[in-house]
């Protein structure tokens, strides 16, 4: 079975500054994988490389078995700042990927309302991004990515800028959607709790230059909800292991 996404010995430099250092990572088909690591370590860079938005200097990234050279088909990204066009309504923003892919008017008209409903934005279609809350903007960004029916979904700290209560609601919504669709997801965050609540596997990266320090399997059964995960007997234990690895990543082999 091919992995949905694999990074083999990936390295990258920015003007001589080493950012990714021999990164090896495999995302199985249909898995929810979360990457955590100290801020500035290179998580966004790795995700952008997977999305084909930036090249790598050594090694190879494959999506669906094919080497990434520029934005690959079947991959959609959810951006940290939501990345909505301020001049488009919520509806037109969600439709964006379908429009530029040249889908028929009929197909767009059927698909968009479905995904708007999935992310609970029904009734807000005609509003502009500046008229809705940050949480709603992130929902719209998610709907836009899901609407093109990608096999791999890349999410870069999508909930970092929303308040804690909204974030919990968004987690539950994302869990509901994901448990139904089973897309392969690579999710970047700097929150251990978010990582455990959402994912099957937590990947811990070291501080810059980023390497994979360890993998932690989250063996908490699904369907999950934020509250049930946090109340689960395994939760504290998994959290502790993530925390230790992250501490190691933060302080380990200081130059």
């Amino acid at each position: 079975m091919t992995a949905a996404c694999e990074c083999r010995d990936v390295s990258k430099w920015f003007d001589g500054l080493s950012v990714l250092d021999h990164v090896d990572l495999e995302v199985p088909e249909g898995a929810f994988v979360t990457i955590i690591g100290p801020s500035g370590c290179g998580k966004t860079t790795l995700l952008r490389a997977m999305a084909g938005l930036t090249g790598v200097d050594a090694g190879e990234i494959k999506i669906g078995g094919r080497t990434v050279m520029g934005p690959p088909e079947g991959v959609a990204m959810v951006f940290q700042g939501s990345g909505l066009m301020p001049w488009k309504t919520i509806y037109d923003n969600v439709a964006f990927g379908l429009v530029v892919a040249g889908r028929s008017r009929r197909e767009i008209g059927q698909t968009v309302p479905r995904f708007i409903e999935k992310v609970n934005l029904t009734g807000y279609e005609r509003l502009y991004p500046y008229q809705v809350s940050g949480g709603m903007r992130q929902r719209a960004g998610l709907a836009r990515a899901l609407a093109v029916d990608p096999s791999v979904l890349l999410m870069d700290e999508p909930f970092a800028s929303v308040d804690a209560q909204t974030r919990e609601v968004l987690h539950d919504e994302l869990l509901t959607i994901w448990e139904r669709e089973r897309k392969s997801v690579v999710f970047v965050t700097h929150s251990i709790d978010e990582a455990i609540v959402l994912s099957d596997v937590v990947v811990v990266m070291s501080r810059r230059p980023a390497r994979v320090t360890g993998l932690i399997e989250v063996d908490i059964p699904r369907p999950r909800r934020e509250r049930t995960v946090r109340g689960h007997p395994r939760y504290a234990d998994i959290r502790e292991r993530c925390w230790e690895l992250l501490e190691e990543a933060r302080h380990g082999d200081q130059p």
């Binding site: 952008r48 999305a51 084909g52 938005l53 934005p71 088909e73 991959v75 959609a76 990204m77 951006f79 700042g81 990345g83 066009m85 488009k88 964006f96 990927g97 429009v99 530029v100 892919a101 093109v148």
Partner: peptide, 21 residues
């Protein structure tokens, strides 16, 4: 720049980048 990146990640052709961004 983020919007240009959004356009690129959705594999926009140059025409669409102009038209939509």
């Amino acid at each position: 720049r983020e919007l240009l990146e959004v356009a690129r990640s959705f594999r926009c052709r140059e025409y669409h980048v102009w038209r939509h961004v």
